[in-house]
Design a protein around this nucleic acid. Structure first.
Lengths: 223, 223
DNA sequence: ACTAAAATTTAGGCGTGCCTAAATATGACC
DNA sequence: GGTCATATTTAGGCACGCCTAAATTTTAGT
């Protein structure tokens, strides 16, 4: 029996395990989930006994195929829900992460399918993340962090971190949303603010904010 | 802190507590929730300590105003969800009870409002039950049980029990759905089947089924 | 009123998932 | 290679919500 808590752990590990072969340390999971490291160890033991992940004591964990499959389903639920809440129900994009975090564990497969149909089987959620297919296909492109882009560059926003509602409201206010064209006009030294030109207007944005925005470099003359 | 389990108990007691002053016995709650009587006693103790219900040992429980308010919110969630799932998402009416039972505990107030708006602030769910308003107003009309209607009577279906998917599929197949006009043509003795005329066709329906259908007597010449 | 059956509560136990504190393993630096 | 800081695991405890079995109260019948 898979509990909601187990699903949450599998999802967290899945999202933290960037490289396919990468092992995720206990402490990283603990920090991400706001629980103690001891709690993570306890849950890891159980998930390992269910062969949903492999655990080398003191050396982190890696999902098995079975574990990844479950995690991917949860992520699919989450991202479909986010999009459904925004597109069909009219939620603002800052509220949907929290709502989806609760709903993702309780909706049925039929609910998932109804959402996918209503949305035309989408592949990208409101924050720019790829929605895994029902078969588990997922090519999550890895973009560059806006905070680390050189001054003078032209970029297109592709993803934003969705965990902090206030941040999302701020980004929406600036127009820093997936699809937006941005020029990095200047970067202040010592982790100072970036000067960004968005829709013709210049805005000064802190590094911390710019670390939550992921962009693609615009090729010269690119549309 | 109100847990999902507490909400489930409050909802059950609310639904079982027909008369306003009626006390609901432990055993009735236990049977309705498919848990042991001892479990009910345990939970009752906690809910009583939170002043969500009053408990006279050995003499059943009655919700306080606070408890009723929470129960009513859960029931509102449940019934709005059922209607939303049928009307907006295209679920068949036999599946929505189970889905709503899970979702009712996790949706936000905003989710509730979005549903209510999308549905035009409805007052009746797909099975004919009244949806409590946000303020907690609710006049649940009590109808008569189809199984106990005398032969020869004309009735209109108003409500059906929603707990058994297979029963709902059967009822839908017969056309025994809220709004349907039905004549009780005959009743076999010894708890035997009823002969019902529905949309011009006669059907023989077991008593057990007819106990799940609630009807209003049609006044002569009533539209 | 007394007794037996039924309903209810108490007692004790289990699995889940969290915590803190203590023990232990790792890895980096000298 | 030893030592120390850090990461991780173990140990022990707690709240929740469920269970069965035993004790208790209510109730109905004689």
């Amino acid at each position: 029996m898979i509990t909601h808590a187990m699903e949450d752990y599998l999802k967290a590990i899945y999202l933290l395990q960037k490289g396919k072969e990468e092992k995720v340390p206990t402490s990283v999971i603990a920090q991400h989930m706001h629980v103690s490291a001891a709690s993570v160890t306890g849950m890891i033991r159980k998930l390992a006994s269910m062969e949903l992940l492999n655990h080398n004591s003191y050396h982190g964990v890696k999902l098995t195929e079975g574990g990844e499959k479950i995690a991917q389903e949860v992520v699919r639920h989450h991202r479909l829900l986010e999009l459904y809440l925004v597109e069909i129900m009219g939620f603002t994009w800052d509220k949907v992460h929290h709502e989806a975090d609760k709903l993702e564990h309780v909706i049925s497969e039929e609910f998932e399918e109804k959402m996918a149909e209503a949305l035309g089987h989408p592949t990208i959620d409101p924050h720019g993340h790829t929605i895994p297919t029902k078969e588990g296909n997922l090519k999550e492109t890895s973009y560059e962090i806006l905070a680390e882009i050189d001054a003078g560059s032209f970029v297109t926003v592709r993803q934003v971190n969705d965990g902090i509602p206030e941040m999302l409201r701020y980004l929406a206010g600036l127009g820093l949303i997936p699809g937006a064209r941005v020029q990095v006009v200047a970067k202040a030294p010592f982790n100072g603010p970036l000067c960004l030109k968005i829709k013709g207007c210049e805005h000064h944005v802190g590094r911390e904010v710019a670390r939550n925005v992921f962009v693609e470099m615009s090729v010269q003359g690119n549309d």
